[in-house]
Structure formats: C-alpha cells, structure tokens
C-alpha cells in the first residue's frame, strides 16, 4: 500500500494535527519507508490466530469496590486550564 501527500493530509486532519505544507514531502517519504517495512507482516500466516490486545487480559479482571473517594478539588482540576470562565473551561468559537 502506498501513501501520498493527499493521504497524509487526510490522516493529519483525522488526528487534528496541523502539518506545515513544507513538511509533507518528508513525511510522505518517512511514512512510506515505515509502511513498506511493516508490510513484511503480510507474509505471515495468521489464519485462526486470536489477536492479543492486552497481555494478562485472560486473567479475571481485578475489580475494586465502587465507593466514593476524595479526588482533586474543582480548583485543582481547573487550575491549569489555558482559558477558563468561572467553573468552566473556555474554548474558542465552535461554529
């Protein structure tokens, strides 16, 4: 599978990642070289093999009691916001 500037722009938009147009040729080159390397996995036979998403996932999940515990205060949670309005995070105009 090949990758071109158009695909890079599309993926960058999906990832909400602004890419400078001058960077595109380098990114295309680098991603193409990595993708061509990982292509080797296509040669392996994985018929009937279950995927591993998490090691230890087959163990019974350890659950905790569902009880309320103190967490950081509202002030701590909001204290590092780049922009806030009282008890709210403020963001630029949405539409």
């Amino acid at each position: 599978m090949s990758i071109d500037a158009e695909t890079v722009r599309k993926v960058a938009l999906l990832a909400r990642l602004e890419i400078d147009p001058s960077e595109e040729p380098r990114l295309v080159r680098e991603l193409a070289s990595i993708l061509s390397y990982v292509e080797q996995l296509q040669a392996l036979d994985v018929t009937g093999i279950e995927p591993t998403s998490q090691v230890g996932g087959e163990a019974k999940p350890a659950l905790r009691e569902d009880v309320a515990k103190p967490c950081e205060t509202r002030e701590e949670a909001l204290g590092q916001a780049p922009d806030r309005d009282g008890d709210y995070f403020r963001v630029p105009q949405v539409v």
């Binding site: 695909t7 890079v8 990832a15 890419i19 680098e30």
Partner: peptide, 28 residues
C-alpha cells in the same frame, strides 16, 4: 481561530517531529 483550528495548531506545534510521525502512523 475557531476550535478545530485551535486543536490542529496546538497539537501540530506542541508535538515534536517523532511524536507527530507516530500519531500519523497510528491514525493511519
């Protein structure tokens, strides 16, 4: 500008080369 551009600019300029490369690779 608006929220969408703020996301893109914050992430595009806040992350370095290798991180951007891996985010793109993973998203792809």
């Amino acid at each position: 500008g608006d929220l969408k551009h703020m996301y893109g600019a914050t992430r595009g300029r806040g992350f370095g080369r290798e991180v951007r490369r891996r985010i793109l690779l993973g998203t792809y």
